[in-house]
């Protein structure tokens, strides 16, 4: 399995919005590659006869009927908001990309 480069680690850190120091990047590069090595070991197993598994609990079709029930009071919803404006949550402005 291909190993992660420093650039890959920086990219993933950016996607996760983590600001990392060069030391942290170096440490994580090692740790992540170690994890990938373990997966490479698992990948040696012959799994051709095993269907892809997205779930380990053997449930399916857990559905509910479409009926509306009460929501939380706005005061409770906003109780932990770091900042609010009326009944809105307030966050730093996001300009540009997602």
């Amino acid at each position: 399995m291909a190993s992660l480069s420093r650039a890959d680690v920086e990219h993933v850190a950016h996607l996760a919005r983590l600001g990392l120091t060069p030391e942290e990047l170096a440490r994580l590069e090692g740790q992540l590659n170690h994890i990938l090595d373990q997966y490479a070991k698992l990948a040696e197993l012959d799994t051709d006869a095993i269907p892809p598994t997205a779930q380990t609990i053997e449930l399916e079709n857990i559905l509910r009927y479409d009926a509306a029930r009460g929501s939380l009071p706005a005061a409770e919803v906003l109780a932990n908001a770091p900042e609010r404006d009326g009944d809105f949550f307030v966050v730093p402005a996001i300009l540009g990309g997602e």
Partner: peptide, 26 residues
Amino acid sequence: ASKMFCSCSTQYDGAPPNTHTCPVCL
């Protein structure tokens, strides 16, 4: 009548903000 993964009402048009929410959709 209700949201995709919780029972909050979808009739929020014109409602004050954050009055149709619950732990799931928050």
